[in-house]
């Protein structure tokens, strides 16, 4: 009798709905990867609820690792920069999902210390300079593009440091470790408004013309219903809801919109011209 009961229980266990799906998410480490993983926990919880999948977020230590993971089907959705998107779309055929409204009209900021005598790109001559990751759109590619365009001393570019992240760049400038740096405007806003950096210590001396940047993508083979539910989850983020407002703030977003691949053609051309895309 006891055996029968055990068998029945075992059968019942088998009849349980299949274990929930896992959605493997990743983000390029625009800021310190350890911190980023913690800050994204509310987003992970929100996506898990919305897609009914178990979301697992990993943030590696460099940008290229995320592209590589997409190529190898090791992640399902990912947050990429403009240039990493162009790479991933070429190499892995990733599908664009959504982006922040501001990503369609994004800028890099050139920052220096409040008391420095750098007032324009031309003044950079003879000063130390910091970029973010080599593969960063707003932390390297576009700043370098506009620096070359305005004939900044090539020595400044060739001797620049790569901090690996926008937060590190701003910290380096604020603490006087480098004379100036180029970075993502959204990270700048977040760090100065949250008090992580004393706004009185830094000064923006140049803002680039607008370009297209960050985007959420799905890997090529991801179930389209799951991909759609990820998009829907982002599009449904409501700033009126305090919990969702917190998520939007962590992402430095006000609103998400549907992303379109064709918009990135200009960036593709720029990257190809610079010999960074084949």
């Amino acid at each position: 009798m006891r055996l029968l009961l055990f068998a029945a229980l075992a059968l019942a266990a088998c009849n349980k709905p299949a274990p929930e799906e896992t959605l493997r998410a990743s983000m390029i480490p625009t800021t310190d990867p350890g911190k980023a993983t913690r800050e994204m926990q509310p987003l992970v919880d929100y996506l898990s609820r919305h897609t009914r999948a178990k979301v697992e977020m990993t943030v590696p230590t460099n940008y290229a690792a995320v592209v590589e993971a997409l190529v190898n089907d090791q992640v399902d959705i990912a947050h990429l920069g403009g240039f990493t998107y162009v790479q991933a779309s070429k190499r892995a055929g990733v599908r664009p999902l959504v982006q922040r409204e501001r990503d369609r009209n994004f800028h890099s900021l050139f920052v220096t210390q409040q008391g420095s005598n750098i007032r324009s790109l031309a003044d950079l001559k003879g000063h130390s300079f910091a970029f973010g990751d080599v593969n960063s759109t707003s932390g390297h590619l576009m700043p370098e593009y506009y620096m070359r365009g305005s004939k900044v001393d090539p020595e400044v570019i060739s001797k620049a440091l790569y901090t690996g992240g926008h937060d590190a760049t701003l910290l380096a400038v604020a603490n006087g470790k480098v004379d100036a740096g180029a970075m993502d405007e959204a990270v700048f806003e977040r760090m100065t408004s949250s008090g992580k950096i004393d706004p009185a210590k830094v000064r923006v001396f140049y803002t680039t013309p607008p370009f297209l940047d960050y985007i959420w993508v799905a890997r090529k083979g991801l179930d389209s219903r799951l991909a759609q539910s990820v998009s829907d989850a982002f599009l449904a983020l409501d700033p009126a809801d305090p919990a969702q407002k917190q998520i939007l703030d962590a992402l430095a977003a006000s609103k998400y919109v549907v992303a379109d691949d064709a918009d990135y053609d200009k960036l593709r051309q720029a990257a190809a011209q610079a010999g960074l895309l084949r």
């Binding site: 940008y63 290229a64 592209v67 190529v71 790479q87 080599v134 593969n135 960074l276 895309l277």
Partner: peptide, 8 residues
């Protein structure tokens, strides 16, 4: 390093 980062 650059070629590996750029996947060349």
């Amino acid at each position: 390093y650059n070629d590996v980062q750029l996947a060349f």
